[in-house]
């Protein structure tokens, strides 16, 4: 079973055989409101943990999406360009943003577990 971890910036990461899929959490999607535009990183781009990797825009405002882990982008979710509403409909599934080939697998363990993230959100 793949492991899902979370950041304080409300990204999620699912790691499967050295590759991390990244998206924004249900909580983040609800806070943003209707997503109307997503800017995704191109394959081959190097991202550092905590660095800006994508942009998500609602009717009202633009927000950065940070890379939770370091590595090289291997793919991005092209379906979001045509249908950014997928981010609201299924943020932790079909609304994924990009995939990263991990350069340091140890970084994942530093992120929050689901229970820790739920507790974190409760405190907001």
């Amino acid at each position: 079973m793949s492991e899902v971890r979370y950041t304080k910036e409300h990204e999620w990461v699912r790691v499967e055989s050295g590759e991390a899929t990244v998206g924004i959490t249900q909580y983040a999607a609800e806070q943003l409101g209707d997503v109307v535009f997503v800017e995704l990183p191109e394959a081959g781009r190097k991202v550092g943990a905590g660095g800006e990797a994508a942009v998500v825009e609602s009717v009202k405002a633009a927000s950065e999406v940070y890379a939770p882990v370091s590595g090289e982008v291997t793919a991005s979710n092209a379906a979001l360009s045509d249908d950014p509403a997928k981010v609201n409909a299924d943020p932790e599934g079909a609304g994924w943003f990009f995939k990263v080939k991990l350069s340091d697998a140890g970084e994942v363990a530093k992120l929050m577990t689901r229970a820790q993230y739920d507790e974190f959100v409760k405190g907001l």
């Binding site: 409101g33 209707d34 109307v36 609602s58 009717v59 009202k60």
Partner: peptide
């Protein structure tokens, strides 16, 4: 109120 539960897109 910046929006209600329907959301900005639907309200618009």
């Amino acid at each position: 109120a910046v929006q209600y539960p329907a959301g900005i897109l639907k309200e618009h």
